[in-house]
Simulated scan of single mutants.
Amino acid sequence: MSWVGVRGGAPRSSSPGRLHAWPAGPADAGRRSPAGRGRAGAARFAGRLEFGPPKSAAGVRVVALPAAAVEALGEHLAEHVEDGPEALIFTGAKGAPLRSGNFGRAVKWTKTVASVGLAGFYFHDLRHTGNTLAASAGASTRELMHRMGHATMRAALIYQHATSERDREIAAAIDHRIATRARRARSGQA
């Protein structure tokens, strides 16, 4: 979740049939890049659970997953998910859908985050973490808007705060460009 930055309802309502793959670029010839198309969380209507649409039209999107997330998701699918394109990827102990109200208890969230030194860390904080990681990896405001499912720049700009690590990466990239230009100038390729 922290690598993707989607809203909490998306993983709770996702199914294998909503996972997609497409050919990667030329550098990754033969490999496929994964992505997921989520739904919003579950809501109870007339005694039955239904999955609703995303929060806004911008929430209807495909979000690419990093390889580390794909590996973990593949292991989870193989070990814990029933066959079928509409089986839920994440469920409670008895196979029931996870909802906002039962999620924390089902996954022992408070105990789990405290055990890794993150007491007070909320599930939604993973969304912030994922989008901060995307911004620090160089995502533009428009790219963050897409990953986050936002129609306006306001929320995306929150994640584009400067960090000293990213500042050093930018300086290193500038150094690389300067050195490349200097080498080309010396060899007459400028």
Score class of each variant (00 low, 15 high):
residue 141 T to H: 06
residue 92 G to V: 07
residue 58 A to Q: 02
residue 121 F to S: 03
residue 51 F to S: 14
residue 99 R to N: 01
residue 101 G to C: 11
residue 67 A to E: 05
residue 159 Y to R: 05
residue 150 H to Q: 12
residue 84 G to T: 05
residue 136 S to V: 15
residue 114 A to D: 12
residue 107 V to R: 06
residue 61 R to S: 03
residue 38 G to W: 15
residue 58 A to G: 10
residue 120 G to D: 05
residue 162 A to E: 01
residue 62 V to G: 03
residue 66 P to H: 04
residue 72 A to G: 08
residue 137 A to V: 05
residue 106 A to M: 06
residue 97 P to L: 14
residue 124 H to I: 05
residue 78 A to L: 06
residue 38 G to D: 02
residue 87 A to V: 04
residue 123 F to I: 10
residue 52 G to M: 11
residue 40 A to Y: 06
residue 54 P to W: 11
residue 52 G to D: 09
residue 86 E to A: 14
residue 46 A to T: 09
residue 97 P to C: 10
residue 55 K to V: 15
residue 77 L to P: 10
residue 127 R to C: 00
residue 148 M to L: 13
residue 112 T to N: 13
residue 114 A to Y: 02
residue 34 P to C: 13
residue 81 V to N: 02
residue 82 E to A: 15
residue 110 T to G: 06
residue 129 T to K: 09
residue 81 V to H: 04
residue 110 T to W: 15
residue 69 A to Q: 12
residue 104 G to M: 00
residue 101 G to P: 06
residue 125 D to L: 01
residue 61 R to M: 05
residue 56 S to T: 15
residue 70 V to D: 03
residue 53 P to G: 13
residue 72 A to C: 11
residue 102 N to C: 01
residue 145 M to F: 09
residue 145 M to P: 03
residue 151 A to K: 01
residue 129 T to G: 04
residue 144 L to N: 05
residue 141 T to L: 05
residue 39 R to S: 09
residue 146 H to V: 08
residue 91 T to G: 07
residue 91 T to L: 07
residue 79 E to Q: 11
residue 55 K to Q: 01
residue 137 A to F: 10
residue 154 R to P: 03
residue 105 R to Q: 13
